[in-house]
Design a protein around this nucleic acid. Structure first.
Length: 427
DNA sequence: TCTGGGGTCCTAGGACCC
DNA sequence: TCTGGGGTCCTAGGACCC
């Protein structure tokens, strides 16, 4: 039996989240900005209709948005994360086999449901998610993940034709949809590949499907060959219920305004280390290496070449101790900081991750097992307090107090669903 | 003045070894 | 003047995703 996949994808997710708690926004253009209020990263249909491109720098479209009476929000990831969890929990009612693919997308294995009317089933899913969470979704169904993405894309682009659900198992419909889908809209074909393929006369998803896989592999790569096979309905990518352990943890931010002073940058790096280490401990992992990176803006028009540098410290013993990581990060920062530059962003990467359980001590460590136990108890205590009392109530002095480098978020909505003091009020 | 953040995978090429 | 061949491992960079 051929496998059946569904992809459920929230429509304009962040913009829809803002609408859930502010129904007056329905019908109005809504956009959500990236961190630091830099770029447009989510648009309601009305905002898309204005021609606001995805990723547009806010300052370039600000006037246009204001003129159209658009509602503009700083991103509120706490809110979006919480609503995402609710959507995923609802979806889990409909298949035993689900993979949360991103904050707003979820694959459902429907192979065992193939004897039902799946369009009908998908409509039930849409209705339920809408009623329980207030978030509108679209659903694509097909014999491979890549085709289900494509089905979803078609459903979303043609709501009047599809009512938000598109089943591409029917061969004639599949032919038609493949024929009208640009090759760059296929999952796994980005801007670069799309340009190359088009230069060779492959402009639609159908043309890509009909290209010989062996040739594609030779000319492009294994990954593009896999895309071709998936477009042929040959499923090469399974639903992965268990997320593979992660390989790295990144914490970085642009500065609210350009920074030059070493002390300010060290504070920012320290606070990123602290955040990354928190994630590390949440996952029950330890890290064997830390990279600090620092850069100036790539958009500076002074003609100077942008500065980007990074430095990696390998730990002789893997750890999840914030204090130890701070020492390494400070040493790394000293290696890459150059006075006189206007820095735009810094961050840290933890990699070489492994499980805390069963980790080995180092032959060369001066730390005793007792020391380690005490440090771990300290970290656990800090994490607990911060969880209970709010983020960063207890923190390391290296993170500083003034935070003049911190990002700007002037248009942020309350954390309606995760903070008691910010619950929505019905009046 | 103002241009996000967090991930994964693949490949080519260099270092190194025998 | 001549200057192998093959294997592995690591890393940087490119490409993709949301």
């Amino acid at each position: 039996m051929k496998p059946v996949f569904a992809l459920a994808d929230c429509n304009n997710f962040y913009a829809s989240c803002e609408r859930v708690f502010n129904p007056k926004l329905v019908g109005r253009p809504v956009v959500v900005l990236s961190n630091n209020d830099g770029c447009v990263i989510a648009r309601s249909n009305e905002a898309k209709a204005l021609g606001i491109p995805m990723g547009a720098p806010y300052f370039q479209v600000k006037a246009q948005l204001a003129q159209a009476g658009a509602a503009v929000f700083s991103s509120n990831y706490t809110l979006y994360g919480d609503l995402s969890r609710r959507v995923m929990q609802t979806l889990a009612q409909f298949s035993p086999d689900i993979e949360v693919y991103s904050i707003d997308e979820c694959f459902l294995g429907l192979t065992g449901f193939a004897d039902r009317d799946l369009t009908d089933y998908a409509q039930t899913i849409r209705r339920t998610v809408g009623q329980w969470t207030g978030i509108p979704i679209s659903i694509g169904i097909a014999h491979s993940k890549t085709l289900s993405k494509l089905a979803n894309h078609f459903a979303k682009k043609n709501p009047h034709l599809t009512d938000g659900v598109c089943d591409l198992r029917a061969p004639d419909r599949l032919e038609r949809v493949l024929g009208v889908t640009e090759v760059g809209d296929v999952w796994g074909i980005g801007r670069r590949l799309s340009r190359r393929l088009q230069a060779e006369g492959i402009a639609t998803a159908r043309q890509l499907r009909d290209a010989p896989p062996e040739l594609i592999r030779r000319r492009y790569s294994l990954s593009v060959e896999r895309v071709v096979r998936e477009l042929r309905g040959e499923s090469c990518i399974a639903v992965e219920e268990l997320a593979p352990p992660r390989q790295q943890i990144i914490a970085s931010r642009s500065f609210g305004r350009r920074q030059t002073a070493f002390t300010a940058i060290r504070e920012a790096v320290s606070s990123h280390v602290s955040r990354a280490a928190e994630t590390l401990r949440q996952e029950g992992s330890i890290t064997g290496a830390i990279t600090v990176f620092l850069n100036t803006s790539p958009f500076e028009d002074t003609g100077a070449t942008p500065y980007y540098n990074s430095f990696t410290v390998n730990l002789h013993q893997a750890t999840d101790d914030t204090a130890q990581l701070l020492r390494c990060a400070h040493a790394a920062l000293k290696q890459i900081y150059r006075p006189g530059l206007r820095y735009q962003k810094c961050g840290v990467i933890l990699f070489d991750l492994g499980p805390l359980q069963g980790s080995q001590g180092s032959l060369f460590s001066t730390q005793t097992a007792d020391d380690r136990t005490r440090r771990q108890a300290l970290m656990t205590a800090i994490d607990r307090i911060n969880l209970k009392m709010g983020r960063r109530q207890v923190r390391f002095a290296a993170e500083g107090f003034e935070h003049r480098w911190q990002m700007q978020q002037s248009r942020r909505t309350p954390s309606y669903t995760t903070r008691w003091d910010q619950l929505p009020v019905v009046g």
